Simulated assay, not measured.
Amino acid sequence: MSLNTATNQFRCNLCGAHGNSVTLFARLNGVSNKQAYQELTKGTNVYPLPKQPTPQNTETER
C-alpha cells in the first residue's frame, strides 16, 4: 500500500483500490463513506461539508 500524506491519498498495489483518508477508513471498518466521515468528524472541530441546495420550482402556474 502506498500512502501520500501530502495529498491525503492511498493506493493498494495488490487490488488497485485508491482514495482519500475517509475512503480508507470506510474500507477498513466496513462502513459507507458517509458513516466514515461522520465518525471521523465526531468530537472534532472539523466543519461539516456544505449541504446541496434543494432545487426550488421557480415557474409560476398560470
Score class of each variant (00 low, 15 high):
residue 1 M to H: 07
residue 1 M to T: 12
residue 2 S to F: 13
residue 3 L to A: 08
residue 4 N to W: 02
residue 4 N to K: 02
residue 5 T to H: 10
residue 5 T to W: 12
residue 6 A to C: 03
residue 6 A to N: 07
residue 6 A to Y: 07
residue 7 T to M: 07
residue 7 T to S: 10
residue 7 T to F: 05
residue 7 T to H: 05
residue 8 N to E: 10
residue 10 F to C: 03
residue 10 F to Y: 13
residue 10 F to D: 01
residue 12 C to R: 03
residue 12 C to P: 06
residue 13 N to M: 10
residue 14 L to F: 14
residue 14 L to V: 14
residue 15 C to H: 03
residue 15 C to W: 02
residue 16 G to F: 04
residue 16 G to H: 05
residue 17 A to L: 12
residue 18 H to T: 11
residue 18 H to G: 11
residue 19 G to Y: 03
residue 21 S to N: 06
residue 22 V to I: 15
residue 22 V to W: 00
residue 22 V to Q: 00
residue 22 V to H: 00
residue 23 T to K: 08
residue 23 T to F: 02
residue 23 T to S: 14
residue 23 T to E: 09
residue 24 L to E: 00
residue 24 L to Q: 01
residue 25 F to Q: 00
residue 26 A to R: 03
residue 26 A to W: 02
residue 26 A to Q: 02
residue 26 A to V: 05
residue 27 R to W: 05
residue 27 R to S: 12
residue 27 R to A: 14
residue 28 L to I: 11
residue 28 L to H: 01
residue 29 N to C: 06
residue 30 G to P: 03
residue 31 V to Y: 01
residue 32 S to Q: 06
residue 32 S to W: 02
residue 33 N to W: 00
residue 33 N to S: 08
residue 33 N to A: 09
residue 33 N to P: 04
residue 34 K to C: 02
residue 34 K to E: 11
residue 35 Q to L: 06
residue 35 Q to M: 07
residue 35 Q to N: 05
residue 36 A to V: 09
residue 37 Y to N: 08
residue 37 Y to P: 01
residue 37 Y to V: 04
residue 38 Q to K: 14
residue 38 Q to C: 05
residue 38 Q to S: 06
residue 39 E to Y: 06
residue 39 E to S: 13
residue 40 L to G: 01
residue 41 T to L: 05
residue 42 K to D: 12
residue 42 K to R: 15
residue 42 K to H: 13
residue 43 G to A: 06
residue 43 G to H: 02
residue 43 G to L: 03
residue 44 T to L: 05
residue 44 T to F: 03
residue 45 N to I: 04
residue 45 N to E: 14
residue 45 N to M: 10
residue 46 V to C: 08
residue 46 V to L: 14
residue 46 V to I: 15
residue 46 V to S: 06
residue 47 Y to E: 15
residue 48 P to Y: 04
residue 48 P to L: 05
residue 49 L to A: 10
residue 50 P to W: 04
residue 50 P to A: 10
residue 50 P to L: 09
residue 50 P to T: 07
residue 50 P to C: 04
residue 51 K to S: 09
residue 51 K to Y: 06
residue 52 Q to P: 09
residue 52 Q to C: 13
residue 52 Q to D: 09
residue 52 Q to N: 06
residue 52 Q to I: 15
residue 54 T to S: 09
residue 54 T to V: 15
residue 55 P to H: 00
residue 55 P to Q: 00
residue 56 Q to V: 15
residue 56 Q to R: 09
residue 58 T to E: 05
residue 58 T to K: 09
residue 58 T to W: 04
residue 59 E to I: 13
residue 59 E to R: 13
residue 59 E to M: 11
residue 60 T to W: 10
residue 60 T to K: 13
residue 62 R to S: 12
residue 62 R to P: 15
residue 62 R to V: 08
